[in-house]
Amino acid sequence: MMRPSKPVGIIGYGVYIPRYRIAAREISRIWADGQGGVPVDAKSVPGPDEDTITMSIEAGRSALARAGVSAAQLSAVWVGSESHPYSVKPSGTIVAEALGTTPWVSTADWEFACKAGSEALTAGMGMVGSGMAEYVLAIGADTAQGRPGDALEYTAAAGAAALLVGPAEQALASIEATCSYVQDTPDFFRRADRAYPVHGNRFTGEPAYFGQIRHAATQLMNELGTKPADYTYAVFHQPNTRFPQTVGKQLGFSPEQIAQGLLAPKIGNTYSAAALLGLCAIFDVAKPGDTIFVTSYGSGSGSDAYALRVTDAITERRKRAPLTAAYLAREKFVDYAVYAKWRGKLVME
């Protein structure tokens, strides 16, 4: 278990979900004659002018607005993603410039498949908790790609979540503690300069997703002396609808505890944003005193678990920026042809 010497928490949060969706049935219509089950109802699709940087900027602006701190007060702007637009040129400097944080700020791009955002969060806890920084902005954002026809294409989606870490006494939710559990696992990977990832089928569920999350979550609850019933809400990384439901049940959480943070059925797998977006959706409705258990997962593989306690500040602060529901409500569905054009799946030369 890891816990900084100085208590820390989430001061502000912000989300971004693109306007566009494609129905999983539409993908199935192209590749499977519409037959068989689908892992989600729909997934979000980034518009042609959107990427990890633009989504991070919007989520970051909302986090700053909710925190009520100026951009110049941030000591770090960190962006976790597996879809940074440049291979070499940081997303973080562009995001920080757009937020108005430059030049006296640390920026970095984090990468750990779907848990790059929570890595940045844990590092931010260390910066603030050690006294090196007053405020750190940790962002998870992705515009994930799946090979046409592959199982991943049904879920690989886009979204961003930004968490502004600061002193616990200013927090809308204090972070009680965290722990990280990682093991070298060949469950999912993408070689450099390849457009699409591959997945190692037999590793995907056990020992990867379920194994890593169970270890991290169980360890943190044991060390804190808590059990699933002690938490108002729980949220897990959500590569599809069924995985977080299953691991929640394995750990002893009820469907009611995970319902509010489960966004995958409507928007798919937002990768680095997924668990953090679910957490933000919980912040949108949580009451002072509520407790939240969060566990991210990244292929390769590993999990970060966090225990949070919501404070009185949540009630006023969540009104300062658009709620997750506002982004979910503006959905516009596109067909496979538009999706293929926007996502670069057409050979143009």
């Binding site: 042609p48 002018d49 959107e50 990427d51 940087i53 633009t54 900027i57 919007e58 637009p85 440049y86 562009i94 757009a98 658009p322 506002a326 982004y327 503006r330």
Partner: peptide, 25 residues
């Protein structure tokens, strides 16, 4: 909102800048 304005090709910059959209709230 800040969006991608131009993609100047595989060896060029991605250019970001302002656009506007109907308000979300």
């Amino acid at each position: 909102v800040t969006r991608r304005l131009r993609d100047l090709g595989p060896d060029g910059l991605l250019v970001y800048g302002y656009k506007f959209r109907p308000q979300i709230s």
